[in-house]
């Protein structure tokens, strides 16, 4: 019983620890990974990935030390039209049979201001790794009812699909694909508390 009470107190303390540095695991339950691509001014197509997992090492007091690793299940690519989804999984695009995972690992974070950061990392799609920059915005950072600090972390960036060997359909699909990753992070709920 005493052990249980001790554990409960420990958990409560961890839950209310504000601005504690920590490692946060996230996946599709915590947010979305979306992309959109233009069709030469005619319209824009939107899609996303339904399965991914990531680890965010973040110290709210020293956000420039943030580290991010994300692994995306390429076969979970989703777009409203079934023919388009099949096309994106096929060899011309993500080639999900040969390259089932897309990964991103951040190597440096540069602080712009208290809520904006410039992140550089390595993005691997179809077995091709390229340097990738992302802009990070920490939005709506606030304490929730339980005392945990909550924020929406939004990462946005642009990739050239041609850089990753996705060169098909250039007459109708632009080369630049915009990415938007949006995660709700509860700072008091670190995986390892430190």
């Amino acid at each position: 019983m005493a052990r249980l009470i001790f554990l409960a107190v420990l958990l409560m303390t961890a839950g209310t620890a504000r601005a504690a540095p920590g490692l946060y695991a996230f996946d599709q339950r915590h947010g979305t990974i979306g992309f959109n691509v233009g069709h030469f001014g005619l319209f824009t197509s939107e899609g996303g990935f339904e399965r991914f997992s990531g680890r965010l090492t973040i110290d709210p007091a020293r956000l420039e030390d943030t580290r991010v690793e994300v692994t995306i299940d390429a076969a979970s690519v989703a777009i409203a039209v079934p023919e388009a989804a099949s096309m994106l999984k096929a060899p011309d695009y993500f080639d999900v049979t040969q390259h089932p995972a897309i990964s991103f690992g951040a190597t440096s974070v540069e602080r712009r201001d208290d809520t904006h950061f410039h992140l550089r990392g390595q993005l691997r799609i179809r077995g091709i790794t390229r340097e990738q920059a992302m802009e990070i915005a920490i939005l709506d950072r606030h304490a929730d009812g339980s005392g945990s600090e909550v924020a929406d972390v939004v990462a946005s960036g642009e990739i050239s699909r041609g850089d990753f060997g996705m060169v098909a359909d250039r007459s109708f699909i632009e080369d630049v694909v915009r990415l938007r990753i949006s995660m709700r992070i509860r700072f008091g709920a670190a995986v390892n508390g430190g």
Binding site: L42, F43, S45, E46, I79, A80, V81, A84
Partner: peptide, 8 residues
């Protein structure tokens, strides 16, 4: 329609 394709 599922894709937001405009009617021009």
């Amino acid at each position: 329609a599922p894709l937001r394709i405009p009617t021009l």
